[in-house]
Design a protein around this nucleic acid. Structure first.
Lengths: 195, 195
DNA sequence: GTCTATAAGGAGATAGAC
DNA sequence: GTCTATCTCCTTATAGAC
């Protein structure tokens, strides 16, 4: 990892816990192992680092890469599909990087500093995917007729809830609890949408 | 409003947007209209202010006061009850004070500064109420047999989702959009739990 | 690329006048 | 109760040596 990458990584870690004001150049430098003045060799200002972090978050907040052809072949077993894809999401959210990016979005939600990512952006990104999935399931008559947008909202909300409940701390064991909660949700939801 | 109350109010406003580090004594003083040194006549330190704010949030994060006998009489019309009580929650969340308190909890979620309120605490407080409500509805056979804890989770998650989506900015118009989303959720949920 | 030195201002907090 | 003055440390950022 280059020094520049180390700086961004350290800043991300601080930002996700301490917020913008709590993320000082001195703390970043200490975490990387260099003087704060050396940071200016890689970034022209503190804002330049933070802006790059939020651009990264924006570009990495999609999920289309998870939707492989192999997975989409399972759409005809809808309940299994819900489980498989949701578990993939949980696994992604459990990674340290994802938790930090999520933390940044949450922690910086309420100020108006710059054009950053909001929680609503993250939700919209997730909804796009699930709306498409449910539209397909309905088209192929795998599930009951219903409004895909409503199904997406109703399925996503508990998913987001679980993310918030279990993946806001770096605790690897929590994924099993999250999976348990998720299975209960899928069971309940499935009873509402099955033909 | 006493100066002490003004100080706490100003600190709450700053804390909910800027976080702990971004909330300086100087900014608080400026918002109140006094010098920062004058603050120390009312609070012995910055931490004392923030601690009192989180104690306030803790003591105000319950909802039992909304559950009047008059409201509980409507339990025999379960769908109406869901609507009425949820709308009361939306109305409460729409107030500026509630939005600021919610903002504080979100923004200070990830550091480990002191024994503050977490999102999970807020959720647990809400779940307690709803679990009780659904238990009663099941006891009286107003709705289908089901696990009250699961029902509470499934009902609360979209509610929380709506709170996050609409009530993180002081925008009075948003409550009508929130109500629209909420009615859709209740319709969907009701179909899953009715006898 | 990193260092030391330094600038100019913001941070929390205290002493003492009024 | 509020003010001015002051302390010490932290903040972002720049200049220039190595």
């Amino acid at each position: 990892m280059s020094t520049k990458e180390k700086i961004k990584s350290a800043a991300l870690s601080l930002l996700s816990k301490e917020g913008y004001s709590g993320t000082s150049m001195r703390k970043i430098g200490k975490l990387v192992g260099i003087r704060e003045s050396a940071i200016y060799n890689h970034y022209k200002s503190k804002d330049a680092i933070i802006t790059e972090i939020f651009n990264d978050i924006k570009s990495k907040s999609g999920y289309t890469d998870l939707l492989t052809d192999e997975l989409l072949d399972k759409l005809n077993k809808p309940k299994e599909f819900l489980k498989d894809f949701s578990f993939m999401l949980l696994e992604r959210w459990a990674s340290g990087l994802e938790q930090q990016m999520f933390g940044c979005v949450l922690v910086e939600q309420f100020n108006k500093r710059y054009d950053k990512v909001s929680i609503n952006d993250l939700i919209a990104e997730m909804k796009k995917i699930w709306e498409m999935i449910f539209r397909e399931m309905i088209n192929y008559k795998f599930i009951r007729e219903n409004n895909p947008s409503v199904l997406a909202d109703e399925f996503i909300a508990p998913l987001f809830f679980i993310r918030l409940k279990y993946f806001t701390a770096d605790d690897k064991e929590r994924i099993s609890y999250a999976e348990k909660d998720l299975l209960i949700h899928i069971d309940f939801f499935w009873d509402s949408i099955k033909r």
